[in-house]
Amino acid sequence: MAIVSTKAIVFSALKYGDSSLIIKCFTESEGMKSYMVRGILKSKKGKLKPAYFQPLTQLLLTANHNNRGNLNSIKEVQVVNPYETIYTSVVKQTIILFLSEVLTGIIKEEEENKSLYHFIETALIWLDTHNSISNFHLLFLLNLSRFLGFYPDASNREALAFNLVEGSFTNSAHEKLVITGGELMSFKKLLGINFDAIHTISFSKKERQVILRLIVKYFELHLDGFKKPKSLDVLETVFN
């Protein structure tokens, strides 16, 4: 067993028994880790508070990592990059719940992936500090695919269609699982940009809904076991 100090992003917190939580975190130093925090829901005096473990909160943890696939334990915790607006905005909270569900379903490895960690960390700070965020989750997912190894190949982007299975542009527009026309135009707007350019893109509610479902489909095709997030419908309702 080793005592480790690392930055961590909370992906989920599940109630265990009457008073405990099982926390899943993506840590900067060792990838995904699960922790048992006993008695946290009953104790008023403990150093650890349930509020620290809200979805996608950014923490600095000191923890015992046992590296045997068992649940680890947290000794100390402090919030880093505390959010100013995420917990007061219904729209931002809904985005956070959606993204935490997606990330929990995708990232499983117990190994360091600093570039992915920093992408998620800086994206969340961006979300907290900006107001023009209605397309944030679309760009987050698309740019996340870069770290997962299936970012769209944009080398032939003048072609008539995009093949979701191949992840590339094509002139064979009659195949299954290709996007064309207005959907293709919307999809292309998101390619190759970062969050600071997101305000230059405007989608109608309908377009945003269609693009989100296309990106989710793209993830389903490229990630074994990825399921359509339950919170997708809630997200669409909030944006309507």
Rank of each mutant, 00 (worst) to 15 (best):
K217G: 01
H174W: 08
P50W: 14
F169Q: 03
A154W: 03
K24C: 03
N67A: 13
L127R: 04
E28L: 14
R38Y: 03
S155P: 00
L139S: 03
H130L: 08
L127C: 07
L190V: 03
I107G: 02
L41I: 08
P152T: 14
N143Q: 15
V234G: 00
N72G: 06
S172R: 15
H222R: 10
L60I: 07
K228H: 09
A2I: 10
T88R: 12
S155T: 12
I125N: 02
D233N: 14
T170G: 06
E84R: 07
R157T: 09
L103H: 02
Q58A: 02
D128C: 04
K176E: 13
E109S: 14
V10S: 02
Q93T: 14
E166K: 15
K24I: 07
A51H: 11
F187K: 10
A13V: 02
L138S: 02
G39K: 12
R38F: 00
Y83S: 10
L14D: 09
I179Q: 04
T85Y: 13
G105V: 08
V91N: 06
S73I: 11
V238F: 12
D196F: 15
V91R: 13
K15P: 00
H65D: 10
V216H: 03
A197G: 04
I179W: 06
N194W: 09
I96F: 06
I86R: 04
I198V: 08
T237N: 11
G182M: 14
L56Q: 02
G17P: 02
T170M: 11
E236D: 08
P152R: 09
T104V: 06
I211S: 04
V4I: 15
S155Q: 14
A159C: 11
E175D: 11
S12D: 07
C25A: 07
T62P: 00
L142R: 06
K114D: 00
I86D: 01
A159V: 05
F136S: 03
L59A: 03
V210H: 08
I23Y: 03
S231E: 05
A154N: 12
L103M: 07
